[in-house]
Design a protein around this nucleic acid. Structure first.
Lengths: 151, 151
DNA sequence: TCCATATGGTTCGATATGGAACTATATAGT
DNA sequence: ACTATATAGTTCCATATCGAACCATATGGA
């Protein structure tokens, strides 16, 4: 039961914190990756490991809510490094499928290994249960923003 | 009491959601700003309105956790648009103070006004109380990451 | 007072980002 | 079959980002 202005302030504060956490966590992760690799590279590899490869560039772009031009570039970087292979999609001549290479899997595993101590330290300061509790809200907000975007 | 691997997964999921919400909210805000203005511009103006102007570029950079080179550029954009003025800092010859202009205040007010309907719709789908409940966690995570960064 | 070092800010350069225009293929309607 | 439209992906371009090197001023010894 707050006044509208307070509500605005609340949402602004929320988005502000989200932006800063995103900023800082990205930098932290990047500092653990080999020179020249970005969060986006890791995120895509991780996505493919977790959900399976063979997805199309567009599907991946949508999963991360980035423009497809951005994903083209990210995938090119991964392909340059031999971490994924782009193969034609037999089911659709316009499209491609993104396949993980062994090197890509190893890269992802190594990044996680290098991050592990960091996360363990983090878990001692920021309670995992609180993280778990906040996840549904973030997912809800994501899905709302995603829907709002297309209107 | 979960296994370490699950904990890793949890934190990754959290940061992933945070990154996407940051991405989407930024785009949404930007779509309400005049051509050529970015979230970073709005964020700085809002910061100055809320906490008072006269701060130094470096102080603002730290508040948003961006490199100082980035803030130099953001402030240059704002100054170009006449939304802030950069004046010498009488207390420190190396430094400057960032002053809001009337135009800057109006710009910020208008952006908020244009965003208002959006936020009201949002509040009907994503409960303000959940937002309020999640804020402390985000702040805690921010502050942890911030501290971890400097080690 | 001088020097060493630290700090605020800018410049430079290399790269990521994302919108718009484009190409190629697919699908739907006639 | 033919045309119109939609969709996957790339290319192009303008701009944001950020690390590193740099300049100017400040501060703290000796």
């Amino acid at each position: 039961m707050s006044k509208p202005d307070d509500t605005n302030t609340l949402y602004f504060a929320f988005f502000n914190e989200v932006a800063i956490v995103s900023q800082l966590s990205g930098r932290l992760l990047e500092s653990k990756l080999p020179e020249g690799f970005l969060v986006s590279h890791f995120a895509v590899l991780n996505h493919l490991v977790k959900l399976g490869d063979g997805r199309t560039p567009l599907a991946i772009a949508r999963a991360f809510q980035v423009p497809k031009a951005t994903m083209t570039h990210t995938l090119a970087g991964l392909a340059d490094g031999g971490l994924v292979r782009l193969v034609p999609n037999p089911e659709d001549g316009r499209s491609k499928r993104v396949m993980l290479t062994d090197k890509g899997r190893r890269f992802r595993d190594q990044a996680i290994a290098r991050l592990k101590p960091e996360l363990e330290r983090m878990a001692q300061h920021v309670d995992a249960r609180a993280i778990a509790a906040a996840l549904p809200l973030l997912a809800e907000m994501r899905s709302y923003l995603d829907a709002a975007r297309e209107e």
